[in-house]
């Protein structure tokens, strides 16, 4: 478990303190995938680097698994860092070492593993990330996705309890991003590892995260379960991110709605109700006619969801609304 208590960070630039992170309190539970989303410069990089103290907080307490890590001396800090893996946007692999030597590197640094232990752990990790055939290659000979897999294997070498991902998929193409995210989800599921992931893509959050914090100008402006934040964003920054990830142009959307007749509703289905033939039933029972203005059916992590914007004309509108409500569908009246 990672707890931030009033943690803040300011950088000294030309003698002036420039705040990078406003006082922030948050809790990341053990075993969850926690996303931090924000534009560049929002403070998410600082926040994630505070967890393994690559950045020192200006104030506040950082408590990890019950210990205040800000009080650690140099030796304790190094021992603690071995239990926190980290992967990076640009992979940061050592170009002078082969794939297997890169993966073995943190174990060698730790100085507590025997040669045989390192050997078998490296083989095991190579198999886990699917790079057994590339063990003797140098990073320059690998594709971006393969490099990130080496990064992940290296981060897992000392069996950490926390994995920090700093824009881990931002330099990858969409397909490779998917496969790396699948690997992260698998690791989280099978090893029970806590993953803290920072990204500027809401889509990454939607695919793998359990909870998310949205950052803007050094502050966490919204935080909660991904399903809630994603389907019912409150803060303008969050809305921007959600719309962006769905390729929705807000103005275009307003114009579309202006042409539609009748009442406009937005329905949000979650879980099993997503697949029920609800709309047809409601239309028959209440006599309303509806047309779909926009919509999306997809998954948030493993939860299916649907979000439809409808215009309804004629029939018994109140009855239709009631029926939708009763079916556990979240109804928002847009007009």
């Amino acid at each position: 478990m990672i707890q931030f208590e009033d943690v803040h960070k300011a950088y000294q630039v030309a003698g002036r303190a420039v705040p990078a992170l406003q006082p922030t309190s948050l809790t990341i539970h053990a075993g969850e995938v926690f996303g931090i989303v924000g534009h560049s410069g929002a403070g998410k990089s600082t926040l994630v680097r505070l967890i393994n103290l690559l950045e020192r907080p200006t104030g506040g307490r950082i408590i990890i698994n019950g210990e205040d890590v800000t009080g650690f001396d140099a030796d304790d800090l190094r021992a603690f860092r071995r239990k926190v893996g980290m992967i990076f946007q640009h992979f940061n692999l050592l170009s002078s070492k082969t794939v297997e030597d890169n993966i073995a590197f943190p174990m060698k640094l730790a100085g507590v593993y025997s040669r045989a232990e390192i050997r078998s752990r490296v083989d095991e990790l190579l198999a886990r990330v699917g790079l057994t055939d590339h063990a003797h290659k140098y990073p320059a000979q690998l594709s971006g996705g393969q490099k990130q897999r080496v990064g992940i294997a290296r981060a897992l070498a000392c069996r950490p309890s926390i994995l920090l991902c700093d824009e881990a998929t931002s330099a990858l193409d969409p397909q490779t991003t998917q496969s790396v995210l699948r690997l992260l989800a698998e690791i989280n599921r099978e090893l029970g590892l806590t993953i803290v992931l920072i990204t500027h893509e809401m889509d990454v959050v939607r695919r793998v995260c359990d909870r998310v914090a949205v950052m803007d100008a050094g502050k966490v402006v919204e935080m909660g379960a991904v399903t809630d934040v994603f389907l019912h964003p409150q803060h303008p920054t969050t809305r921007d991110f959600v719309f962006e990830s769905e390729n929705i142009d807000r103005e275009e959307r307003q114009q579309d709605l202006a042409h539609a007749e009748g009442r406009i509703l937005r329905l949000t289905f979650r879980g099993e109700s997503t697949y029920k033939p609800l709309l047809g039933q409601v239309a028959r029972d209440s006599g309303v006619d509806f047309s779909i203005l926009s919509g999306r059916i997809d998954h948030i992590k493993e939860t299916p969801y649907g979000q439809l914007t409808l215009s309804l004309v004629g029939g018994d509108l109140a009855r239709a609304m009631q029926a939708l409500d009763a079916a556990d569908v979240h109804v928002e009246v847009l007009r």
Binding site: L54, R78, F80, R81, F88, L94, F105, L109, R154
Partner: peptide
Amino acid sequence: DRGIIEATQAMGANVRQ
């Protein structure tokens, strides 16, 4: 690359390492 130094630091390396 500074990132390599940062990554090595994040692995718990000391200055000599």
